[in-house]
Amino acid sequence: MFTIQDYVVPGTLEEAYRILTAKRNNTILGGCGFLRLGSQRIGTAIDLTNLNLNFIEEYDQVIEIGAMTTFRDLETSPLLKGYFNGLLPQAVKHIVGVQLRNIVTVGGTVYSRYGFSDLITALLSLEAEVELFKTGRVSLENFLENASEKDILVKVIIPKTAKKAVFNSMRNSQSDYAIVNVAVSKEGDRWLLVAGARPHRAKIARKASLFLANSSLSSEDIEHAANLAISELTFGSNMRASQKYRETVCKVLLKRAIGEVLACK
């Protein structure tokens, strides 16, 4: 059973970090959507509510999304609807229901590096960075690949590019986790092909992305890029699907997403 011994609402990030690192079982609370499903015995639960981390803000070069921003905020944000063909709202809107999305947070999701995550896949295709309180700013890609010590995710930073982007996922029941999800972005000649829920963590298919950038984007090229992506990424089996099926579908979704990106205005 999930238990909490003590509960604090710190007024500064410094304080939150100090408490977090004071004891091994001290824990940051995101929206608790996932936390509560485990049987964690939390020493001090740290509530970031008072740190003003619920924001989506636009700057010259970047868009910043605070750790305590909920998925529903992402989904309904006029700002985010206007960028990257509404990629981020698209990516989160399938997740269960409005009431859950009113709770679960960007910080809890990104920090946890969930393999099934739809948001992470989308953020990768935008070359997002994360700002951690202690570690500082690192690329999301880097963050996902390297285990780090306990830290607090403060915000996600998205370069304000002219990327066109598309998110797509395969779900059997529409409110289920994705069997596989993909995001594809393009800025000029630069392509990024990302696949997640394989069921492993989302990853950029570098070779395939590069190939596409230097190709003529014929249907053969697109087919080849999708094939490259499948061979450079690893896939696995779980209750939702076999490795083979994931590979098959991922390839199809990537091809389609590339096509859709090309069709974007």
Partner: peptide, 27 residues
């Protein structure tokens, strides 16, 4: 959508609405 599944050792794996999917409105 629905399928009661067991692990190799006979433990039920579909024991929540996250893993056992009944149709939702969109399905």
């Amino acid at each position: 959508y629905e399928d009661v599944k067991y692990s190799e050792r006979g433990k039920m794996q579909t024991d929540t609405f996250m893993q056992y999917k009944i149709p939702c409105r969109k399905d």
